[in-house]
Amino acid sequence: MARPHDTIRRSGGWIDVSDLAIGVALLALAAVIFYDAQRLAPGSIYGVGPSVAPLMIAGGLVLLGLATVLAAWRPRADAAAEAGGIDRAAVVVIVAALAAMIALMTLGGGFVLACTVLFAGTAWAFGRRAPAADVAIGLALALVVYAVFTRALTLALPEGPLEKYVQQALDPLVRALRALPWPW
């Protein structure tokens, strides 16, 4: 039998690397919570201070982390042998698209541009190979969402160079809609 994905052969069994990593991550999380709880000032005389719940949760995480590390060791390569591997490239592309979106929103690229990039990147990750069409669809969708959220729902979204023109284009439309005889 072929070696299952993401496992290491050890004498007498297999080690599931993902489960091992999760177990270690849980122990690390417990350590962070424990460290953070140490510097909290104690609460009132009778009550329970703010550090008690963190310590209880950190304790639970330690037990679960150890249990997970133990569970990573398998006598047989059963559960790890699931159907096939994963499409790593697709995951990387979506994460990159998310990072680009965050950068654009943060550095003043604006909502519309950031969402267009995210849309086109995600579509690429799902196997589409028509970037021009996807950019156009993403742009159209982002514009509609932007118009509805800022005007109909009056929620603020990050603005960039494009958004000013969008607002100017929307003004006459909004005025026309307001002039209609609404029942309420």
Binding site: F119, T122, A123, F126, D134, F149, L157
Partner: peptide
């Protein structure tokens, strides 16, 4: 599917950034 999930991600981002506009 590509458009569906790309659209879902746009709505996910929109809701988040409308609730708390912060990186």
């Amino acid at each position: 599917r590509p458009w569906l999930y790309a659209g879902i991600l746009i709505f996910a981002v929109t809701g988040t950034v409308a609730a708390k506009p912060s990186p």
